[in-house]
Design a protein around this nucleic acid. Structure first.
Lengths: 205, 205, 205, 205
DNA sequence: GATGAATGAGCTTTCATTCAT
DNA sequence: AATGAATGAAAGCTCATTCAT
């Protein structure tokens, strides 16, 4: 298991980043939340950017690892797609209350593109790899489904992927809810899962 | 027509904000892009925040105004929904190249929630109103459609709205593309429109 | 008579400087108070500093001119001193309400020492001359009084002058009142005059 | 004893504020004078305003504390008044050379009234309290003296207080000297003390 | 004379990061 | 490992002043 302090820092950072956004979150605040000193954060993490990237990366690695396991037992593209999005949603909605994970992705992913430091280049590559792995998995099943005549072919695969991805994200951390300042989602985890499955089914020929 | 310099500033700001994000965009850079001095930006706009809020607000006002006009001639909820999302996508994809508008929304909307200054309170309220108007319009047609037996009732209206909204946004400014650092969408405006219409149709009973 | 606009500007400046202090008063605010444009202020006055210096200077010139006239008819140092301080107090308390003049002196005199611009060097010299004239007049009468055996000699003349000057200023624009945020003086013009005369008399042998 | 750096900053600030005035003093200059970085000033003090308020406050607290001690041993209003003004003058003339303390009060007190920040509200209240304590002490002894028939009753107590206060301030940091750009006072600490005592005695019946 | 858009120097303040202890 | 004082770059914002109209 990872170092205890390191975990404490990451958890504090998740909370603060999710609540305040990357920009408005400060190292001082994260340190306070974690109950340690500012200096110690830089002992465990290169920089503020490294901190959020580490969060993002570990999330993506987790998602992909889970998929690797679950997908082994499934051998048709439709169920595979449902599994992938199901896994994703389970994680994002893990803490129904705060929706930290969805917020962290919203807040952190834009930062990935801003990386300039040479030191973080590797972390960026890792994140890109995990991202690609996730999206390639989705793309692969969509193409397989269409090729096998199981999924509607009238839409390009990348279009279908955007519809599935967009729906999935909005259902879990939806823009609408943030814009209107509403706290909760107005529906529960089961509603989301049912909705995604229905959406995917509606593309089944 | 609006003041010339004011427009110049707004256009420069749209470009810089979209490219760099709110945080990393600087007043100095926007001024340089606009070909004017830093000070002049504060002559036309209260603050950096006011600048991006003004952009967001004018976009939303434009969207709602267009909808008001177009929806007058339509009297069934299905076509109305198609029209609303069609309008939105036309605007977001106006400059195929840069996708500035989609990026600006991604970058700017999170800032709306951060407003503290008393001076900008009014602008926040205006934005909230325009946002509500847009989303209420969508919600209304979904409910109308379900009530009239035209749209599948097995999903809660707010779930349907999230699916439509999420798909629409991902199709136009989709996360996937940003994550992978790809410049273009890989498909065109017509593909998007066709996809949204098909998606909506798939909910028609 | 001086130019009408110029007077308007000066009156506005007196009000704003007295209310806000030199530092926090802005040209924009003075222009607004005067009902003219910012630019016009710089047509009539070199700079913000020139503006307050002009106010101070014209006040001092006025004081000295009045003294020149009144003192001609008096030929003993005691009454002369009473006259000088009486004149001063009449002017400072002219607008009982706002005490602008006292405040302006408090606010403006420290700025005289800050003058660096070559252009304002002359104005500084003029102010210094008027200042010296006023204080030399006072010093002269004190020395005359002491030499003639009319005034207590046990205190150095410059000490006596500081007592008279300090009492006079505190009685009219007193620090105490400002510190405690009290609006008025708590006593009237006649009280002040009586007090100064008594104070001077208490030094009469 | 107070933190070393904090003291260094305060001393540097006293010098710079006294020399340049609040407005023209810059954080950069104070930092340079203190031999530390700009940032560190904001580590110890909220803001530039907090800096000067802290100076004022600690001065007033010191004055009041000294008075509390000294006044215990005195039981007539005349000597009490002499003691209070004596204490004040001792402090203001502590560094004969620079007269920093008198200048700081001139420069800083007007800023107290300008406080708007919520954070500094408490400091303002503390300063107001210390101010009130000092002035109430003076007022109390004047009234006691008049009531006991020891002090001339023909002048209102608030008038007497202004005469004593104004004389005291002018004797220590007098306007005249500043106006004429003269460095020194032209008289010494003993002259001042003797003068104040004589002034007070002249009000004794 | 009069305007007000435009300039740009200069300021305070923030905060990630460093490093002596 | 851990602290937190100390740094300094960087940024937003103000406002006196200028000048084309």
């Amino acid at each position: 298991m990872k170092n205890d302090k390191s975990t404490k820092i990451l958890n504090a950072a998740i909370k603060i980043f999710a609540d305040k956004g990357y920009q408005y979150a400060t190292i001082a605040e994260i340190a306070k939340e974690a109950g340690i000193s500012k200096g110690l954060i830089h002992f465990y993490f290169e920089s503020k950017l490294d901190l959020i990237l580490s969060i993002i990366l570990s999330f993506l690695e987790h998602v992909n690892k889970l998929n690797d396991i679950k997908l082994k037992e499934i051998n048709n593209p439709i169920d595979s797609l449902k599994t992938v999005f199901g896994t994703f949603q389970d994680l994002l909605l893990k803490d129904d209350e705060n929706l930290y994970w969805g917020k962290i992705l919203n807040v952190g992913l834009p930062e990935v593109g801003k990386i300039k430091s040479e030191v973080l280049r590797n972390k960026k590559i890792e994140i890109d790899n995990q991202n690609s792995k996730l999206f390639n998995t989705i793309d692969k099943f969509i193409i397989e489904g269409q090729t096998a005549g199981l999924l509607n072919k009238s839409l390009k695969p990348e279009i279908v992927r955007q519809i599935f991805g967009g729906s999935s994200q909005f259902l879990t951390t939806g823009m609408y809810l943030q814009l209107c300042g509403k706290g909760g989602l107005g529906y529960n985890k089961d509603d989301v899962k049912k909705a995604m499955n229905m959406l995917i089914d509606s593309f089944v020929v």
